[in-house]
Design a protein around this nucleic acid. Sequence first.
DNA 1: TCTGCGTCTTTTTTT
DNA 2: AAGACGCAGA
Length: 755
Amino acid sequence: MSDDFLNLLNPEQRKAVTLPEESALILAGAGSGKTRVLTSRINFLLTEGICHPSEILAVTFTNKAAREMLDRVGRQLPIKVSRMWVGTFHGLCNRMLRAQYKAAGLPQSFTILDQSDQLSMIKRVMKAHDFSTEINKPSEVQSYINGCKEEGLRATDVHEKRPRFIDKLSIYERYEDTLAKEGACDFAELLLRSYELLKNHPDIRKHYQDQFRFILIDEFQDTNKLQYKWIKLISGIEDGRAINTVFAVGDDDQSIYSFRGANLDNMRQFLHDFKVADPIRLEQNYRSTGNILKAANELIARNPSRLGKNLWTNSGEGEKIRVFEAENDLEEARFVVEAITQYRSEGIKYKDMAVLYRSNAQSRVLESALNNNGIPYLVYGGFRFYDRQEIKNALAYLRLAENTSDDAAFLRVINVPTRGIGQTTVEKIIDEAEVKGCSCFEVARSFQGRAAKAIASFVSLIEEIRAKKDQMPLGDLVSYAVAKSGLISMYETDPNGQDRIENFRELTSAAESFVVIEHVDEETEETELKPLALFLANATLESGESQSKLGEDAVQLMTVHSAKGLEFEIVFITGLEEGLFPHNNSIFSPESIEEERRLMYVAITRAKKRLYMTMAHRRLLNGREDFHIPSSYLSEIPAELLKYLSPQSRRSTEVDSSNEGDDFGESIWNRGRRMENWTRQIFERPKPTTFGMRSRVKSNSPYAPGTKILHEKFGEGVIYNLTGEGESQLIDVMFSKYGKKQMLLSIAKNKIKIV
DNA sequence: TCTGCGTCTTTTTTT
DNA sequence: AAGACGCAGA
């Protein structure tokens, strides 16, 4: 037997991998070989004969990570990896619930609602029960509900005293009823159901506890309270039974999902609950050069209450971080494109370069700049395949066929394509369903009235798909449904419908290649398989982690969030502006500012060789031009690690002598000077005293947009908008410390000073 | 009942 | 800028 894989590890890694049967917390810094440790651990457990594949439960953050893990282990060992349970929390809970649907109180073919399905359902529930969407915004209700669920709280568990949440709570209550009635689960519900299943059924709990002797959790810092409770339950630690060991791997500095309930405190709690004396720290970084790492360390050091960790490398200092302050977003994009072109000509592949941004909206300008220069690029996230309306429509037909209680699906396609069933009729159906306490489809089956004929043909359409669904191969079923439903002919007349029809083809082939993984577990698990239900669940859970056109040489564009876990030779972090990164919505709470800082930390540590940080003083955002000052995070990085490339900063900062020479950043700048006239205008425009003064807003007021001010209470800021007349004139100010504020000029006048 | 138009609002991150 | 929503006219 070969222990080769152990020889590839450094001492800390090896210590983690070869740990005896006990729980552990591995603090794995960015680029410290976390994935290798996880897979090696599994490898170790199996090759040493410590356990069988079926005794391993591994939770990853994304489906992609799960696939990679299975892949790597499978390649190293001649073992049936399908016996292991590897997946995301949601994926694993789904698997468990499908197997135990009866005990969980769900129909076998329960539907999974994604975020937007959930939102529609909330709207529907609010409408049905006469809740004003003015007072309670559906999206706020949504986050309230998810917030509760992520803490493991049912509506009946919440004793709400805060007045403004009382209504949200009762909407939650009714929403729960609707979910149950329609046989649907939202994302959080999958976890909660699964948790309750284990909690309320000692026999089932024991079954899984007996099975999973080794539990491995990746990205532990991003688990929420409910997920942690789930882990505790399944590990057996709460029952005081023979305890399964939990091997938790995470990095508190990379916790960036608190907006969806991630609870950083789980790490501390874990040490206590699982009696882990000391976390194992993996601090040697194999990814980035010294300067990049130093910048990351210095930045993150500003966050109080970390578990503590300092990355080091022996790969040398490397280049400095290049900073570019652009006049506007167009120029920023141009700069990035220039650099990419240059690197490409030096032989660096497009796919080794990534452009990162805080929010998806920022990709537009970058995309068009890349496009104009004929540079291939790949945008991650953004429009997901399964989010497209035509795909959602097609899936809705299939959902309804699989689960006729699925009113959400019913309402989505009852009149798509239009078949003469209008709002009045639909509302009649909804009301009747409400009265009878049955599904809309049930009502439709015996619908009498004006549109009876149209409805009857819709019903028989669904029945036909239903009749075929367990006979036909999945791929055939999908193409049958899109044709028979009339969706194809509907899009044929649509001017840009060709793409949509093409997407149907893609959906069909996804269905064709969908393999129902057979994990028939003796005793408890059901053996009867429902391919369509599994396919639909998979579609929502794997909502298009782009089947990344692998091997394609293209520049990678993505948000910082989706860059987590990835690495690139060259990284551009764009939009380093106060209000954007850190984002305005985070600016008011210290915790969020810290989270944003961690986000920046993640961004920086993606880079292997070269890192660029760029910002734009003016930016078109939400349909209007905003003025921005450089991100405070930029100033949190020691100046000696930075090298400014932009003319603006050259003027304001003394030129660093290291900026001379044939260094690469220099060459871009020099080439910039030789460019055509219009380009030169941008590059060589003198720095305006109040930056961004070439405002389109016609105004000769001293408070015109772009004016820098000092407020007696809020400190420094920039006016970015001026509206109204006379006494009611308003200014919008972006403060560096307090974010956006709108104030009445007549009053603010006395409190501000123009700088 | 359907369609088109105008108005309104919304803008963080995603399993 | 783009999408959701509501209203009016066909």
